[in-house]
Computed example of a mutant assay.
Amino acid sequence: MTKCRTPVLAVVIPTYNEVENVPILVQRLEQTLAGIDWELIFVDDDSPDDTAQRIREIACEHPQVRLLQRIGRRGLSSACIEGMLATTAPYLAVMDADLQHDELLLPEMLLRLQREPLDLVIGSRYVTGGQVSDWDAQRASMSQLATRLGQHLIKADVKDPMSGFFMLRAGVLHQCVRGLSGVGYKILLDLFATYPRPLRFVELPYRFRPRQAGESKLDEAVLWEYLLMLIQKWIGPMIPARFIAFSLIGGSGVFVHMLVLWVSFKALDTSFLVGQSVAALVAMTTNFFLNNLFTYSDMRLRGWDLLRGWLSFVAACSVGALANVGIASWIFEVHSFWVLSALAGILVGAVWNYAVTAVYTWKRPKAA
């Protein structure tokens, strides 16, 4: 019986709408990693452009290529975690499918890990010799802000904590995987913040190339998810990141509610009941669309599902409002402490709204 050889290196690449880049990347990696026992694991979040099918076709001719296709969920960090856990290789590399990372750096990364007492080798744009392609002002400012925030969190002298291009020993992942948040797009920062001891690392310079095909996925939603991951690391894993996002957006709804109430009740001279009703509906509507855009960006509702989702969201929040008032009134009658009563009512309403809308508004699609 022939014994299968365990690959030395697994390259994990999350994909979403990268059908044009996949064959080019496979070809480049074959040339770069010649002479190394390696495998390539694509983790595709059910791309509508048939990226997964293209990977299957390539895998028929290239046995080192593997595919994990995820249905009903999205997220770069969680995709990287699943891909890294799906291999027995002792060394794990993570890179993007958009051809912006320099695959020629991979052999040197592997050699440094094999020969030196390092846990991690990072491809860096911000050490001497590294550089980025032409970025517009918005992307450059977003990257700089995220880098500064990340450096404060991990308390390590990492010049490029936002890098999505790195290689690590598999044991590093296995020691901290249960503490990883899996939120957002920056798994490297999550690893630094979660690992129980300071990581031994080195940063190698490379040029961050311009994207050749497809569209960049860096937008406001990505920065929002990054901030959520930072908040969760600061407060601990007991509170889900989605609940943090849901609560923050709910807090913004208070401002919207008061503004609409003022316009209706004071400026338009309606009755307080009418103004309060309109304000509540507008606030719930803005909260729904913001949650759909940011909190549940990986399960975003579209088309007719958007209308169904809005109706279920308003219904759930209406019941949550009644629970808020009921609990607050009961505690006030017992203890006569209005601040505590109000906060308790708000907490009960928030938990109700989050739990019910997570089940009925943003339902995960069933796998076919």
Rank of each mutant, 00 (worst) to 15 (best):
E215V: 14
E215C: 11
S133T: 12
R308A: 11
D305H: 12
K159I: 01
F332G: 04
K186R: 13
L322V: 10
D50H: 15
D50Y: 14
H335G: 09
L204F: 08
A321I: 00
I154T: 01
Q27L: 06
L273V: 12
L99T: 06
D96K: 10
G345Y: 05
P63I: 04
C176T: 07
Q276G: 10
V26Y: 07
I55C: 02
Y126D: 14
T87R: 09
P48Q: 02
L9A: 02
T51K: 01
T32F: 07
A79P: 09
A52N: 04
R70K: 14
W304S: 15
F332Y: 15
D305N: 13
L113N: 05
E116K: 11
Q232D: 03
L40K: 03
V325Y: 00
N353F: 00
W304G: 14
E220A: 11
L204V: 14
S312Q: 15
D136Q: 04
P117M: 01
A221Q: 11
L168E: 04
I239M: 09
V314S: 07
V359N: 10
L25M: 11
Y354H: 06
L228T: 01
V132R: 15
F208K: 07
L67G: 04
R209G: 09
Q144R: 11
V282T: 12
R139I: 13
P198L: 08
D134C: 15
C176Q: 05
V348T: 00
I81L: 13
G253N: 00
L106S: 03
I36S: 06
V274N: 11
D46A: 10
V11Q: 03
V263A: 13
A170S: 12
G345E: 07
P117R: 01
A328K: 01
E116C: 08
L92T: 02
D219H: 08
G236R: 04
I36N: 05
V121Y: 00
V11K: 04
